[in-house]
């Protein structure tokens, strides 16, 4: 099974992001990490690979910092890693990113003489939570799409995906090549061993620019994007919150109930 996993680098999602005085999100000093759902996707892909054989390639569109995310991927299951980068790509919308990922896939297939059977994306990225790139990549590739996976297996050249639903799950079959997006499985991503970390450090990370991919620079980047952010704001704060902090907790609890009654919250 030849597997491609798309990795997006996002600001650490355990940090609360607020606006700067100029009205843009303050990302100063916020560490960049691989999108949580992409780490789940890589773990799922790695388990599948361990079950059926094959190799995993990770790709990420972005500036040089994405190489750190890719290095980490090489330490926990991926064999090959490529950065997709070019000044012309800045400000690309999800459609343009889907085009870039499709072009990178085609180039890798041509260079290696092996097609990818499965393309993994995260269900969504924690920065925008839009979850569009995977679906649009499937559209660009004209490949079947299965969303919100919590598990996957493969049998007789077909894959069977376990798709999370509000009520349980669907078991969905598709032929390869196929695009899947991954939600939170029951398992957590593995940590790299020290040995694998050292090994990953020495592994090369390739880079593709517009010219390598044969991308028309006018079709990607800010200029080609149809969706634009015009302004940012912060949600209205809850005002007048009260905090009860009594030595006698039972007394505090009674006070709390009295306040709830007074506020007609019941």
């Amino acid at each position: 099974m030849e597997i491609l996993v798309c990795i997006k680098q996002v600001p650490d999602d355990s940090v609360e992001i607020h606006l700067k005085s100029d009205g843009t999100p303050n990302l100063d000093g916020v560490t960049k990490v691989a999108n949580a759902f992409d780490t789940y996707a890589l773990e799922m892909a790695t388990r599948l690979k361990e079950a059926v054989g094959g190799e995993i390639t990770v790709v990420s569109i972005g500036e040089d910092s994405v190489r750190d995310a890719l290095k980490n991927c090489l330490a926990v299951g991926a064999e090959h890693a490529y950065q997709i980068t070019d000044a012309a790509f800045d400000g690309s919308d999800s459609m343009a990113k889907a085009e870039l990922l499709a072009k990178a896939k085609a180039k890798l297939e041509k260079d290696n003489g092996k097609p990818f059977d499965l393309i993994f994306c995260g269900f969504e990225a924690t920065d925008r939570a839009s979850g569009q790139t995977g679906a649009q990549l499937a559209a660009v590739l004209n490949a079947p799409l299965i969303t919100s996976l919590v598990d996957i297996s493969s049998k007789d050249g077909k894959i069977v995906a376990k798709q999370e639903t509000d009520f349980g799950y669907n078991s969905i079959e598709a032929a390869t090549p196929c695009v899947v997006t991954v939600s939170k499985p029951e398992y957590d991503p593995r940590y790299p061993t020290i040995k694998n970390k050292l090994k990953a450090k020495k592994m090369p990370i390739g880079a593709f620019a517009a010219a390598d991919l044969g991308v028309d620079a006018s079709k990607v980047g800010q200029g080609a994007a149809l969706t634009h952010t015009v302004s940012f704001s912060e949600p209205a704060q809850k005002e007048g919150g009260v905090k009860i902090n009594e030595k006698d907790q039972e007394e505090g609890a009674r006070k709390l109930v009295a306040m709830m009654v007074e506020a007609k919250a019941l």
Partner: peptide, 9 residues
């Protein structure tokens, strides 16, 4: 955006 601490228009 960012889990809801920021809203983008």
């Amino acid at each position: 955006r960012f889990g809801g601490t920021v809203i983008a228009s």
